[in-house]
């Protein structure tokens, strides 16, 4: 009941004529996610590993209630994205590089603004802001407009702002993508700490080392389907050398053969 449950998730997109031309397909609908099921538990980092176009972002967007599934459901602490999207958004934090902050405002203003939208009371907000800003080194830039921040500082501000409500579920699309080494390190350290604090974390990535360094359990997603799932060790063990890279490439090859 306390977990984040993805059940038989299916999502298709209507393709515009332009998209059909780009994708060289005659199909009018693209199946982005095809019957996906997995569970992310508290105190655990679940990694959704897959190549580009596998359906990772689509899955995470369904969890974040930004888009709604054609079939299946996502339950966050028992609340369904289909019927209780407001509560779901209250419980989770969703982070992707597509969620931008308005250049005009300062981190300080934005933190307060999003805290209010989440209904965080003033005292909690102040304390949380102080902690998070200090932790990510934003404090010195608190009154600098987002437009004038470095890209690393922008990312860290986005991260801090996605955590204004101290959510129990953290959903993170390609967490270290496009970050410099130092910022990436700050982010991964923070996620590990959140795991210790008992939060459920789902992250998507196409980078094997991210999974190997951080994840407790992993689901390998290819063409919208989950091809393998288990703890990192369980998945590794399917290969003779216990090498995740080998497992991954074999699965990709298999699905290419199946598709051909």
């Amino acid at each position: 009941m306390n977990d984040l449950l993805v059940k038989d998730l299916r999502k298709t997109f209507r393709l515009s004529r332009k998209q059909r031309r780009i994708d060289r397909t005659k199909e009018r609908r693209k199946v982005a996610v095809d019957g996906l099921s997995f569970t992310a538990r508290r105190g655990e980092i679940y990694g959704l590993l897959g190549p580009n176009g596998a359906g990772k972002t689509t899955t995470l967007r369904c969890i974040a209630t930004l888009i709604s599934p054609d079939e299946g459901d996502v339950r966050v602490d028992g609340k369904s994205v289909l019927t209780d999207s407001l509560e779901v958004r209250q419980y989770i934090s969703f982070l992707t590089s597509e969620l931008k902050l308005d250049d005009f405002f300062t981190p300080n203003y934005l933190f307060d603004y999003f805290s209010r939208l989440h209904g965080v009371d003033a005292a909690t907000r102040k304390k949380r802001k102080k902690d998070l800003f200090k932790r990510f080194g934003i404090d010195r830039f608190a009154e600098v407009k987002v437009a004038d921040l470095s890209s690393g500082m922008k990312q860290k501000t986005s991260l801090a702002i996605s955590l204004v409500h101290d959510p129990d579920f953290i959903v993170f699309d390609e967490p270290t993508n496009g970050l410099d080494v130092l910022t990436a390190r700050t982010v991964t350290d923070y996620l590990l700490e959140m795991r210790e604090a008992g939060k459920a974390i789902i992250l998507s990535t196409h980078i094997l080392s991210v999974v190997e360094k951080m994840c407790d359990r992993v689901g390998i997603i290819i063409d919208g389907r989950l091809q393998a799932e288990g703890t990192l060790d369980e998945v590794r063990r399917t290969d003779a050398d216990a090498n995740l890279e080998n497992v991954f490439f074999q699965l990709v090859e298999q699905s290419e053969v199946a598709a051909a």
Binding site: T65, L66, R89, D103
Partner: peptide, 11 residues
């Protein structure tokens, strides 16, 4: 500018 999505993920 992609800022509306940030608003859409709030409750």
């Amino acid at each position: 500018r992609g800022t509306i999505a940030t608003l859409l993920v709030t409750p």
